[in-house]
Write a protein that binds this DNA or RNA. Structure first.
Lengths: 121, 121
DNA sequence: CTGAAGCTTCGACATACGTCTATGTTGTCA
DNA sequence: TGACAACATAGACGTATGTCGAAGCTTCAG
């Protein structure tokens, strides 16, 4: 189990962090959250994630998404990173391995990016 | 002007990309968007961004946010990265330099992370 | 049991990244 | 003008990252 996965496991069930605009993140919050953003911070990984996320039921076989211009081992490497960041989960079904997005994590990240409320005049 | 800034400038005024769950990103969209996520993918940068974003008017002097445990040049380096990614803008006012978050960009990133609608039963 | 398909792991390599110290630049104030 | 404060840039250095080819593991068809 990765260090990040341990951190994720140690979190309360509720979403990690306040909106970035609400208050400054603690060191620990920043560490955890940055790891998630980092996982989406590579073009190939982002495309893989988008391919999974936009599939029916937000789930796809590796064979369905592997066409992103890099070798198959590289695809596998990137999917592993996304999984370690808590963004994807995987499950083997017979010959194929399916990856699925974690909707709660996606929502939590979205919440982080909530813009600040307009300042009173 | 950085390559990324050129890409940002070349975009339509409207937010860049569809939700990651809506359809798979094109290569160009992924390139641009990944650069933004990447900018937030470092703990120190994320804390700096959060410090600016949570300040009144989403704006702060470097001197207000520089205490993140790294040297002053490193802070400057990270702020530059955030600026190149289009997440922050800067302005000199006398002795001090103020950084401010771009609310539209923040909102666009948040929209990217919109969870998929529930599948019909 | 054997072979093949689907995916992961391993080891190597070039490049990118985060950090530092030293030095520049810009603005303020006496 | 000179000294100082606030930031930025330059250069160096160790580590992390993205990529590949080769080899390993699982599962299924025959």
């Amino acid at each position: 189990m990765s260090k990040l996965q341990e951190m994720v496991a140690a979190l309360p069930a509720e979403p990690c962090c306040p909106a970035l605009t609400e208050r400054e993140l603690t060191v620990e919050e920043a560490e955890l959250t940055a790891a998630m953003f980092k996982a989406l911070g590579d073009p190939v990984r982002l495309r893989l994630f988008s391919k999974v996320a936009s599939h029916p039921d937000s789930e796809a076989c590796v064979c369905d998404i592997a066409d992103v211009g890099v070798s198959q081992p590289t695809v596998s490497h990137h999917l592993k990173k996304l999984k370690e960041a808590g963004l994807l989960a995987s499950e083997r079904r017979g010959t194929w391995v399916y990856y699925r997005v974690e909707p709660a994590v996606l929502a939590a990240m979205g919440r982080l990016l909530t813009p600040a409320p307009a300042t009173a005049a």
